[in-house]
Design a protein around this nucleic acid. Structure first.
Lengths: 202, 202
DNA sequence: CCTACCGATCGGTAGG
DNA sequence: CCTACCGATCGGTAGG
């Protein structure tokens, strides 16, 4: 069921619409299993039309990933602005990240999966965007390590942290027994070595 | 470059060979991006021949996943046999799981990703196999919780744990600075709330 | 397990 | 952004 016909150029940003639809489909079905026809149909276009906006299916993926990471980064920076206490800041980072992953309609971190579908040049762009996304995390972990609240801000800890958060995109169900707030609490408690007994019944 | 011709039935188990090749390719390129021709070629068959052993590409995936989970489970059970202390047993579980994931040539847990490509019946079989895989973990976590060494053995903790372990399949490089032993140490230290200062330089 | 093949689908393009 | 289309590839099958 196609949407209304576009009025010859009056449509402001079909490109952004395509990117959102593509991101959603890539997350749900995977890059290879998603058809450019699926994407076109999702925004009410004909099969060839996405190629008026993007050179290739790969470019659609690359742009969707970079846009998603950049939007996520801006959400992070806005959320931690003025949060001086590093423990509190870690919580805000975790909660905001889980929000992007589990609540926003474009859970971009899950797309990191699909980097393998890109060529070397595009991979480098993704890596750079992900580094920017990681920067506020690294700063906060460094601060926590300096104060002795975590053992180390070195690679293993940061990667284990992203692992436990990102994997939740695979199993978390919004209609399940666990709220995103509770999940964020559990993750932070685990990281900071607290017992968080209030969650033992979740 | 095809292998030698099979001598009419003397070949014992081409089926298992196909499953190993399929698992490897599915992990590396993803299910949808892997061609049944890729799989055939990997074991020196012609394009149509895998369908002599398997009804469909989906069946190949399902069998590869179940075999992988079952093999992983047997490795787990063998490794923890006779390990009475639950903290030590947790370490052995983590280390063995990481071995399956990062060292064995069939890192089956990564295939859990591809469950979405299966129909409902097959998904139920996978879920059952994964439950069997999880059983020894749950028992150990319950024991640790009963002794107060972790806050809770409820869902969030177990899922966060699998998350941080499984995600490592995405970034871990055997030729990198981190050994699998060190990674296992970091993960267990995080879980049990220890500081593990010996890893602060990794 | 191979040969030979089919129908369907897919990414992408020409030309407007 | 649509119409109309192409070449390539893919999962799967018949028949031996």
């Amino acid at each position: 069921m196609p949407r209304r016909k576009s009025e010859a150029g009056l449509e402001p940003n079909r490109r952004a619409e395509l990117l959102r639809a593509a991101a959603r489909l890539f997350v749900d079905k995977g890059f290879a299993a998603t058809t450019t026809r699926d994407i076109a149909e999702a925004v009410g276009m004909r099969s060839g039309s996405p190629f008026y906006h993007f050179r290739s299916k790969q470019e659609l993926l690359k742009e969707a990933m970079i846009d998603g990471l950049e939007a996520g980064r801006e959400r992070l920076l806005a959320a931690i602005a003025g949060v001086a206490d590093p423990e509190r800041r870690l919580y805000v980072l975790v909660r905001t990240h889980l929000g992007t992953l589990l609540e926003a309609d474009c859970n971009s971190p899950m797309l990191l999966n699909e980097t393998r579908s890109l060529d070397v040049a595009a991979r480098a762009e993704i890596a750079a965007a992900f580094d920017r996304y990681q920067a506020p995390w690294q700063a906060t972990l460094d601060e926590l390590a300096a104060r002795g609240r975590i053992a180390s801000a070195a690679a293993p800890l940061r990667l284990l942290l992203f692992g436990m958060l990102n994997w939740s995109g695979r199993w978390y169900r919004p209609d399940g027994p666990l709220t995103v707030d509770q999940l964020a609490d559990s993750a932070v408690a685990l990281l900071l070595g607290r017992r968080s007994p209030d969650l033992s019944r979740a």
